[in-house]
């Protein structure tokens, strides 16, 4: 089991703990990864807004690099998965577009993409390729006392034409992973909704309302923590949570404590026996100490 690991900008920038936790988890599980050291940004849907062909060429470069290595791509970011995976499906389906993009790609990098690569988020790899039975056997510290709210975010689910792993209306892969680790998945309304990240710099009020709603819903449902497969959702829910607290109107005073937000590999890492320090949880804005105490 070997993948070309596409870290994405956040895991190499504002969420380095995601990369740190991912490396610990894949090594422990025996998933071999080769990091794409010359990776470039997927565009996060933003470059597509400016110039779709430019975004397609940037992603084709990543896809062609992995193709030359003979490997499928592993992502750890929901937004990268939606963008890179979506472009991949488009280029696989539309030969004329692929040929057009390949002209620009070959002129500038010497690479060419033939459409043979799969792009899979670690979440999907664990559920399908690795297998939950095997994962359960690797768990050394079952998270039996934890109630975890799964937060999917947008791009790992929608549009379905770009993703296609989970049912976008009622996804279950995060819930299944949480159960496999021994914790209880918490049902709540906002698990597939937006975290507000895409508009934080330009429409802060809208974004803060979204953070407040998501965290508030998870609190009311009784979650000890939220887990997400997307570092942009993590940033949004973690670093802006204090400012969004006043937007959490539905929460009673006794549930006003901050909600720890975990990257998926951090939750996995805890169940595999890694400490919160080893998983980079000290970098979070919302303290995770109370959560760690419940486990160790």
């Amino acid at each position: 089991m070997k993948y070309a690991y596409y870290p994405g900008c956040a895991a190499k920038g504002a969420a380095p703990e995601l990369h740190q936790a991912t490396m610990k988890v894949v090594e422990r599980l025996g998933i071999e990864v080769v990091e794409l050291e010359n990776f470039n940004c997927c565009g996060a849907g933003v470059i597509t807004e400016a110039d779709p062909d430019l975004a397609y060429t940037l992603n084709a470069k990543t896809l062609a690099t992995a193709e030359a290595m003979g490997l499928s791509i592993m992502t750890v970011c929901g937004t990268c998965q939606g963008t890179l995976g979506g472009v991949n499906k488009l280029l696989q389906k539309d030969e004329a577009l692929r040929n057009k993009i390949n002209i620009a790609l070959k002129q500038t990098t010497g690479l060419e993409y033939h459409g043979t690569v799969s792009v899979k988020h670690l979440q999907w790899i664990l559920v399908k390729d690795y297998g939950l039975d095997k994962l359960e056997k690797a768990v050394t510290h079952p998270l039996t006392d934890l109630a975890i709210a799964p937060f999917y975010g947008c791009y790992i689910l929608r549009p379905e034409s770009a993703t296609g792993f989970d049912n976008w209306e009622n996804p279950q892969s995060l819930e299944r992973l949480i159960k496999t680790l021994g914790a209880a998945p918490v049902p709540y309304e906002g698990r597939t909704k937006c975290c507000g990240f895409p508009v934080f710099l330009e429409k802060e009020e809208i974004a803060l309302q979204m953070v407040g709603s998501r965290v508030g819903e998870a609190k009311v449902a009784g979650a000890h923590a939220m887990v997400t497969p997307c570092p942009l959702c993590h940033l949004s829910l973690d670093i802006y949570q204090d400012r969004a607290l006043e937007k959490i109107k539905v929460v009673a005073e006794d549930t006003a404590a901050p909600m720890p937000i975990l990257h998926l590999p951090q939750l996995l890492g805890l169940a595999l026996g890694f400490s919160s320090e080893e998983l980079g949880m000290k970098r979070h804005f919302v303290a995770t100490d109370a959560l760690s105490e419940k486990i160790f």
Partner: peptide, 25 residues
């Protein structure tokens, strides 16, 4: 302070190819 703004920022190894893609476009 939490190490979430890498300093100094390191470009990825492939940035020259990315620049070429942008220039071409």
């Amino acid at each position: 302070l939490r190490g979430k703004t890498p300093f100094p920022f390191k470009r990825t190894k492939g940035y020259e190819q990315v620049r070429a893609i942008f220039k071409n476009r």
